[in-house]
Amino acid sequence: MMHPDDRPLLEVSGLRKSFDLSKPFINRLIERSERQFVKAVDGVDFTIQRGQTLSLVGESGCGKSTVAKLIMGLSRPSGGSIRFEGTELADQPAGKPAQLRRRMQMIFQDPYASLNPRWRVARIIAEPMKSFATHPDPGKRRKEVDRLLEFVGLSAADGDKFPHEFSGGQRQRISIARAISTKPEFLVCDEPTSALDVSVQAQILNLMRELQRELGLTYLFISHDLAVVNYISDWIGVMYLGRLVELAPAAEIFAKPQHPYTRLLLDTVPDISMVNRDMDRPAGEVPNPITPPPGCHFHPRCVHADARCKAQMPDFIASATGHARCHAVQEGRLSPIAERAALRGAV
């Protein structure tokens, strides 16, 4: 879907969030310890064009869900800017401005925890319409709820039931109906299929793509599953310890991964086309984010790391496919990996 103006719907630049983990003042005084901060998000930049999907992937603790919360205003950024259609959101109080918040909604990971168990489904779906006063008339509101229920593949009669009467996949459909009830343009989806079984995951992913086609929605999709992300995204950002390490179009990032971490992720994700493959497993785990390694955060696990990587944080600059944060890529030290798609197909 094209829109008259082609400026991005969402522009995020220099986004930062740190959490204070310091001990209480008295303890610090006695133990002579410093204040302690964890930089959950440390300078993230990306833009999302209207009608497109950008996914953030990474392992636990990389900050991807924190980015989602910052954009939705569920948490206040420590720095940087979030612009929605040019309007700055980073310095606004929670929920303000209401007209913009109506246009952004969120789908959460756990469909068992994100629906009020004591409310009937119709009331759950109607609540955003009520609070944003999009459908002030109760009769019309109920009609809209019925329409939404059918739109997401449930029936109008399901509105009178309680969440516990539904399976995980159906609950996620209810969450989606609630999210689209105020006719938003932008949805943040935080691991929407991670709690679901694979056959149900396919149903929800298909529903989300259908919604995008029909309603022209823009998605920020958070996931740790590369295959899911590959299916749903136009752009993919790979995060590691609070920073984007690579950002590129979805088709390119899997065919020509630039950053060593992206390559590691692609090599380690279990793949059903790789029966009993035997290969060298990468060593190490994600380090503690409170005390990240100096220089490039990834260098202790990186086979290409040299003295510069240990000392200096690489910038996020243009690569062959998009952007990457890696000295080795920038210096051309990395062997350009042959078309990996071909390699993965040849099993």
């Binding site: 056959s199 590959n230 299916y231």
Partner: peptide, 24 residues
């Protein structure tokens, strides 16, 4: 067969993912 087809794969991007309707 339905389960295998419904798993998204890296390097493939069909318009619609084959799905099994309903739930267990």
């Amino acid at each position: 067969a339905g389960l295998m087809a419904s798993i998204p794969r890296i390097g493939e991007k069909p318009d619609i993912l084959p799905q099994i309707d309903g739930a267990m």
